[in-house]
Amino acid sequence: MKKLLLVVLLIISLLYVYPIIFTFTSSFMSYEEIMSGNIHIIPEEFNLQQYYSIITFKGEYFHYFLNSIKLTSIIIFGQVIIGIFAAFAFAKMDFVARNLIFILYILAILLPFQVTLVPNYLVFDKIQRLINIKIFDTHTAIILPGIFTSFGVILLRQFIRNIPNEIIETAMLDGASYTKILFKIVLPILRPAIFTLIILTFIDNWNLVEQAIIFLDSPSKLPLSVFLENIYYNDFKVFYAGAVLYIIPSLILFIKGEKYLMEGLNIGGLK
């Protein structure tokens, strides 16, 4: 039975990975082969043409790559730190209007982004005038909304909720403060959840296109995702190689993060 299920699982995973294999092998095809309409997965001849032109003619590729790395890492860092505190408060502390605020947190991220786009734009403009810092056409315009989205707060709150209250109550009776409880008890249990947040935030922001298009003017500041779209529209011949390079950081993150995802501290062990 177990073996049968494992085979089923392997087949499922093959279905999922097939289009990616297709992308990968396409990146070794020559221009002509890609442009010919039929689907085939094995290149007629192994060809590094695409990678070669990305590296030489499109040297900017790595510049955009660094932009993306910078944006995502700052956003992840900020979101995790802010999210941990807020999530803990929402899950385990009692304060005025807690549920109301939380509902607002959910509501605001459920709106399609075009709705808040213009008001958001005007808010940035206000901030710019009030405190004299430039927001438009700087990475701040992408980073701030990325850090303060309620996504991380909601995620972590749901995970913290699963921690039985008795653990916290016992610690409180021992005289521990909230901060101490958060760092000594909740965080170790929360490790898988935090890694989840890191991976998902990375994915969401690595693939972010629309906001970057709207808020950034200088081409040199754009993230890789926008540049890849440019390749898609204007230089499809080298698109697949670009896409493979684009996926690599996520792949590394998955390989490295996957084991932390599964190695959480068991709640039962704390009792």
């Binding site: 700052i74 860092f77 900020g78 730190i81 802010i82 505190f85 004299n132 810092i133 430039k134 927001i135 700087t138 990475h139 701040t140 980073i143 701030l144 850090i147 403060s177 909230y178 901060t179 101490k180």
Partner: peptide
Amino acid sequence: MKKLLILVLIISIVLMIGCTVENIV
């Protein structure tokens, strides 16, 4: 301890924003 942590938190936010503001104009 608590206050210290919150202080660290706030400073880190400020720093984060600060280092990303490419130019204060």
